[in-house]
Design a protein around this nucleic acid. Structure first.
Lengths: 225, 225
DNA sequence: ACCTGAACACCGTTCAAGT
DNA sequence: ACCTGAACACCGTTCAAGT
C-alpha cells in the first residue's frame, strides 16, 4: 500500500517523521479500525518491534500523527466582517475533518494541543473578542462551534456509507405506524437528506453564528461590523 | 463484577435480555474499550462461545445493547412554549449521554434507530413544526441540535479525566509564547472551564436555539408562542 | 437444542539476543 | 545504536464435538 520511503539518517533505517508519514497514509486509506503496528511495520518494510525504537507505544505514535496532521489546517486570511471570517475558519476545519475522518476518531480519545490547533484556536478567539465578546464568553462560544463541527464530522456517515445509511433510515421509517409517528413519517425524505453534506453542516453553523451574534449585541455594544 | 442473573427459560441457560443486561452493566462500569466477548462470558459464568448462541457476532450484540438502552430516555411531558420544551428535550438527551458515555462511543459507528430514539425524534420534529418550521427545515434544525448534543458528549472529557485534561491544557498554554498567542494566553482559565459541565453544554444549546428562533421568525410567521 | 474446548488468525508489547 | 525473533497475554470467531 504505502511505498517504502528513502532513509535520511544513514545510521538509522527510519526517522520519526517517516514513520508518521506512512502511518498517516495508512490511516487515510484504511481508517483507524484496521491500523495496527504490525501493518505499519509491514508498510515500512521492517519488523514490528522496530516501530518501538521510534515511539514508546501505539498511543504516542498516534499522538504524533495528530500533531503532524494539524498542519493540514489552512487558516483563512483575515479580513472582512467577524462573522464571515469565523464562518470561513470553521468551514475550513470541517473540510479537513471530512477529508480525514480518522482525525475525528482519534480526537475522541485524546485531545489535540498541537501548533495547528493552537493557531486555529487563537484565530477564533481573536475574532470573537474583536466582535465584542469578553474572553470568557469568547472561549465558551469558540468551544460550542468547535464541538458542533467535530460532532458533525463524527456523527455523519462517511461518503462511502451515505447511501446505505439513507436507505436503512428510510426502510425503518417506512415500517413505522404513521399514526404514532406522523412527523417522522411525513419528513422521511428530509430526514434522510440531513444525514450528511456541506449544506446540512452549514445550516447548523449559521444558526449557531446567528445565536452568537444575538448574544453579542444583546449583552454589550458591538466593536466591529 | 456483574452478578449471575437467574435463568428464565429452563431449557436455555440464558436469554438475550439477560445477556444484554449484563453487557450494559459491564459497558457502564468499564467502557467500550475493555468490553470483550470473553469478559462478558466470564461475567455470565459461561464459556465465551455460548454468547454466540444468542448473538451472531459482537456487533449485533452491541446493536441490541443500544436498542435496549434507548429506553433510558424519558421524554419530558409536553406543555409550555416550544423553545422551553425543545430545550428540556435535549437536556434530557444530554443527561443520558453524560451518564452512559459508552452509548456515544457506540453511536459513532452504527446509527441508532430504536424505539426510544424514534420517539425522541418524533417529539423534537413536532415541536419544531408547531413552532413554525416546515418539516424540511424542522429536520435540519433537529439534526443540528442532535449533532451538537452528541458532539458535546463525545468531545468533552468524562468526569474522571476532567481535572487531568484541565491541568494538561493549562500546562500547554503556560508554555506558549504570549506574543504569538495573546488570546489563548489571556483566556487560559476560561478555556479550561469550557472543557466540560452542564453550563457549557447549555451555553451552546441556547445559542443554537436562539439562532433557530431567529430563522423561524424571519422566514415565516410564528404559529406558536 | 444448547453448550463448549480446541484451534486459527490476529492484536500490542516485553525481553533477550543479534549486528 | 539500532534492529529483530520468539514469546506472552490477550482478541473475535470457526469448527467439530460434547450433552
Amino acid at each position: 500500500m504505502a511505498e517504502r520511503v528513502g532513509r535520511i539518517d544513514p545510521r538509522a533505517k527510519l526517522t520519526r517523521a517517516q514513520v508518521v508519514a506512512v502511518a498517516w497514509q495508512l490511516l487515510d486509506a484504511d481508517g483507524l479500525e484496521s491500523f495496527t503496528i504490525r501493518r505499519l511495520a509491514a508498510a515500512l518494510d521492517v519488523a514490528p518491534m522496530t516501530v518501538y525504537g521510534y515511539f514508546s507505544n501505539k498511543d504516542s505514535l498516534l499522538d504524533a500523527v495528530l500533531e503532524a496532521g494539524s498542519g493540514e489546517l489552512r487558516l483563512p486570511s483575515g479580513s472582512g466582517p467577524w462573522r464571515a471570517q469565523l464562518r470561513a475558519l470553521f468551514i475550513e476545519l470541517h473540510r479537513v475533518l471530512a477529508a480525514h475522518p480518522f482525525v475525528v476518531q482519534l480526537r475522541e480519545r485524546r485531545s489535540i494541543m498541537g501548533p495547528g490547533v493552537l493557531r486555529f484556536t487563537e484565530a477564533g478567539l481573536q475574532l470573537l473578542h474583536q466582535a465584542g465578546f469578553p474572553l470568557e464568553e469568547a472561549a465558551r462560544a469558540f468551544r460550542s462551534l468547535f464541538i458542533y463541527t467535530f460532532g458533525y464530522a463524527s456523527f455523519s456517515p462517511g461518503a462511502e456509507d451515505l447511501e446505505a445509511s439513507r436507505r436503512r433510515g428510510l426502510a425503518v421509517i417506512a415500517d413505522l405506524p404513521a399514526e404514532e409517528y406522523p412527523a417522522i413519517t411525513e419528513a422521511a425524505l428530509p430526514l434522510a437528506a440531513t444525514l450528511a453534506g456541506d449544506e446540512q453542516y452549514e445550516y447548523g453553523l449559521d444558526r449557531l453564528l446567528d445565536g452568537l451574534d444575538a448574544a453579542r449585541t444583546k449583552s454589550r455594544g458591538s466593536r466591529s461590523t
